[in-house]
Design a protein around this nucleic acid. Structure first.
Lengths: 104, 104
DNA sequence: TAAGTTATTACGATAACCGATGTCGTAAAT
DNA sequence: ATTTACGACATCGGTTATCGTAATAACTTA
């Protein structure tokens, strides 16, 4: 099960993250909770570097209260570029679904 | 684009691989071609270790002509365990699709 | 001050990548 | 019938990127 998560599901979660960040600003803890709610777990050491990477790539933009110190909560939202990426991925998800689930 | 492939699409491709291996025996080249047909590329150095890993995990079973030498073509097919894994993943793909594409 | 919430760091383990190489089968050339 | 050349496949080696677990640090609130 752990194998499947690492090999495949983690990628799915990344899509979820982009999707949610497009609907409302989200922070790391929110994501951890959301996944836990679905019965999964991802460790901080995986999640935060992942978010940082997405920000580097210009998919997300994080903003934290400047008065809150270096580890203040950071809310991420989807950038314009991120929106394009998400659109593109959506098309891929649809393809995958059509082929693997509905057997089109 | 390269970023997206590495970060997300590679996982999708793995699902494709399992799916196809469930329908007919496939070899590495077949996969490389299939992806190229769809406009993507993956290097042998990524694909073959990936297949080896899936075999280790018992998702795939590869068979090559014993008279063909050490680098003979190897055809992979889905194992029983692989079938279970695929079923599980299918459910996840459906969830992802419902949430991210159809916005259910 | 203690507890809760949140993000970051450290670093070993795994996975991904590229390029080059080795092996076989087959068809063409002689 | 040999040899040569080529195409199809898998594997290896070295490097970089990503993941995972556990520990840590900074604020906030009680």
């Amino acid at each position: 099960m752990k194998d499947i998560e690492r090999e495949i599901l983690l990628g799915f979660w990344k899509v979820h993250i982009l999707h949610h960040a497009g609907e409302e600003p989200i922070c790391g803890q929110w994501i951890l909770n959301e996944l836990r709610r679905h019965g999964y777990s991802i460790s901080p050491g995986t999640l935060y570097p992942l978010l940082a990477r997405m920000e580097e790539r210009g998919w997300l933009k994080g903003k934290s209260d400047p008065a809150g110190g270096p580890r203040a909560r950071k809310d991420y939202r989807l950038t314009l570029r991120g929106r394009q990426v998400l659109e593109y991925i959506r098309a891929q998800v649809k393809e995958l679904y059509d082929e693997v689930v509905t057997d089109k």
